[in-house]
Amino acid sequence: MLNRLESAFVTQRRFIDDAGHELRTPITIIRGHLELLSSDATEREETRVLVIDELDRMARMVDELLLLARAEQPDFLDLHPIDVAEFTEELAAKATVLGDRKWQVAETAPAVTVADRQRLTQAIMNLARNAVEHTAQGSPITFGSRLVNEEIHFWLKDEGEGIPPADLARIFERFARGKAGQRSTEGAGLGLAIVSVIAEAHGGKITLNSAPGQGSTFTIVLPLGQTSVGNA
């Protein structure tokens, strides 16, 4: 009991530490560039673009941190029945704006599940955005939904570089990064942590099957307890 408490405390402490670190970086950048701003017109324009970009990054991070904080509250999800087959097609259509990839749907489950449509969409779009970041232009990214025993699986497969075994365990941790220390173009390394908390809030989980050179398949597994099979 004490060990668990201590471990939770350490995790929380590290999270706050990481959040502070990630928010201080854009503050440092903005401060430094404004402090040294000259009257040169070109430089002013470059600085303006850079400052807005860094502020957008901070705003995204604050949204993500708030979502992670809210995920522990009981009213986090807004649950309604969802037609899984229709929803799967809708997700693939939405994802096309994320990048020039060969988006496709391999299978759809004929079922109705009770879930938070907006949160689930957010989770799967995070997976799709992640897939775009790790694949080349025109590379296939495939969606699917499937009934497996007592579960419904939403899966997304890419043919990107894959994930080394050493990174597999920590990839869903908050502020985890594929390549050590690197600040990605998109965010702070909270995207997959958000997918994980959304899956868990539904009583489900996220699984990952990946190896270097073989692409990655992410699967959101939701329990059938909130699902019904039907001619949806």
């Binding site: 970086t25 950048i29 430094g32 402090e35 040294l36 850079l50 860094e54 220390g181 690197q182």
Partner: peptide, 16 residues
């Protein structure tokens, strides 16, 4: 430092 947006102003300030 690996963050180029930090090194850019740091170099500028120090060179000045």
């Amino acid at each position: 430092e690996d963050e180029t947006r930090i090194t850019s102003f740091l170099e500028k300030g120090l060179r000045a």
